[in-house]
Amino acid sequence: MRHVIAILIENEAGALSRVAGLFSARGYNIESLTVAPTEDASLSRMTLVTRGSEDVVEQIIKQLNKLIDVVKLIDLEETIHIERELMLVKIKTADKMRDELRSVVDIFRGKIIDVTPTSYVIEMTGTSDKLDAFIATVDKNSIIEVVRSGATGISRGEKGLHL
């Protein structure tokens, strides 16, 4: 099962390596990991996507909680939540392909944010699935570069992950 875990962690040097080190030392897999400071400068928020059986994910959550720097965490899988990932894609565009590509980008609610005579840079956000789907519709040979942020997530409704 895929789990999205949101973590509030002390914004201190080494905090990230404690999380990354835990995963490599215990052989858990990390599908993606994003981290940035929050509105409270002393805290960072991480979103970690992992896969594992229920038992393994239970251990992962306990082990994460055990890290002294981890202040709070939730498994977003246990709440109704929203997930978003940002993707930038650079695509080779021959003249005749441009219209078609533009309409696909529209359908996926993406934006073209850079244009040269031979390329587009497309910005797109959405669930990781949606981004996968977009990549699948574009001709593989035309893709120059793909960069993805990894998933971030937040629960719906009034309740939130804060101190």
Binding site: D55, E58, Q59, K62, Q63, N65, K66
Partner: peptide
């Protein structure tokens, strides 16, 4: 005292 010791190897 450590939740991570519980159900780690034996449910």
């Amino acid at each position: 005292i450590d939740p991570a010791s519980i159900s780690k190897t034996v449910k």
